[in-house]
Design a protein around this nucleic acid. Structure first.
Lengths: 211, 211
DNA sequence: TGTACATCAGTGAACGCGCGTTCACTGATGTAC
DNA sequence: TGTACATCAGTGAACGCGCGTTCACTGATGTAC
């Protein structure tokens, strides 16, 4: 357990405040709406003061992004381990949707970053203990139960990608201001959509492709 | 057939050039990366010249957006009408994905706009002869075949939204620079993912929700 | 066909703005003896 | 405990930049007679 001097404590606290405020602005105006000068204004700093803590705007954005990926992993890991693999996978999908709803700023930022050509962040998102890795493991566990089968045509990664896409699409549509999602609690819809997909996977005899 | 004077022809042609260039910039730098000054630079105009054709930047963006929605409708309408309703729905999903791949600038802009609070564009996207309407009709046709059933728990609109979400998620993930999509032709994956979902819908006996 | 005039398409300079970053600085906090 | 000095956290002014929009203007195109 390392001891922090009061000065260090203050330092990390301010750093945290900066990131937190960055998140707020991103939540309001989107990833492109973040500006250092506004950030400084909100925490009553001069713009140059921020450079005591970060070397550039990009560094702040990257820090928020990495935080976000970590939090997403937390959401996914929070799903109880004692569920059946299939139920676990379903709950992980719902956790993803919770994350997107409760932290739209992280959600949008992560995907804005992945869409840019900054490959290093994309790699961070896809490797090691990343959210995508957790998904792959959960899908693998489901396949090992034998209830669903993979083939050359639709392998583990295809299955993971399809599920990711379904859940991601639901998350994006929820954030779009469409009437459908304004009123009702969408969790029931999500549950059913995921279950429909699961039922489809259970059926091993896909019609042959007619293309 | 209305006759256009040379002057009018020139006028509409320039207007078209402006919109086309706006699309190019959006394709390169995203919706927020569009600037009138750069647009003017590219077509060798002074920035003020653009105001002969549009009253504001927003008007240009809106025009591009509406164009995009129209083109998306075209893509969906291009699907042959003589297919079985289920196949037609599947092909419409693939058409949506084609649209996203072939016109990422329209695709991104439309959804950026829907995410903003500009309700009037959202309504434009959801009403009348809109893409969403075409989807609803196709789903309705499938339901009428009796091969799939809707219930109070999962009605026509839920089914349409789920399918939209799946296809939209696939489109978004494809545009994210993830390795999976870099190499292979993703259409096969899309076909199978949609078929999986379709198989799930065919199965009318969902497990009861355990929530 | 020619002339007089109106409309039009496009220019160039200027407006006020907010931005990211740099730099010399100052007063407060911490350290050594 | 007090003093001398070093480090640190934050300031304020300035840099150069690109932006959307306005406005008075000009030369070219079209129209009327």
């Amino acid at each position: 357990m390392l001891e922090l001097s009061p000065r260090q404590r203050r330092y990390y606290k301010t750093k945290e405040t900066i990131l937190q405020t960055a998140r707020e602005i991103i939540a309001e105006k989107g990833p492109d709406g973040l500006s250092l000068r506004e950030l400084a204004r909100r925490i009553d700093y001069s713009p140059s003061g921020l450079y005591e803590y970060f070397n550039s705007k990009e560094e702040i954005v990257t820090a928020v992004c990495v935080e976000g990926l970590g939090l997403l992993s937390n959401y996914l890991n929070r799903v109880p381990a004692d569920l059946s693999p299939a139920d676990r996978l379903l709950e992980m999908g719902l956790a993803y949707l919770d994350f997107a709803r409760e932290h739209p700023e992280y959600f949008r930022l992560i995907f804005a970053s992945l869409s840019h050509e900054q490959t290093h962040l994309a790699k961070e998102a896809m490797n090691g203990d990343s959210p995508y890795h957790l998904l792959l493991q959960a899908v693998q566990a489901v396949i090992e139960t034998g209830e669903f089968t993979v083939s050359e045509d639709f392998d583990l990664e295809d299955m993971a990608f399809s599920l990711w896409a379904l859940v991601h699409g639901l998350a994006v549509l929820e954030q779009t201001h469409l009437t459908k999602f304004q009123q009702e609690n969408p969790t029931q819809l999500y549950r059913r959509a995921l279950r429909v997909f699961g039922e489809g996977l259970r059926n091993k005899n896909f019609l042959p492709d007619n293309s």
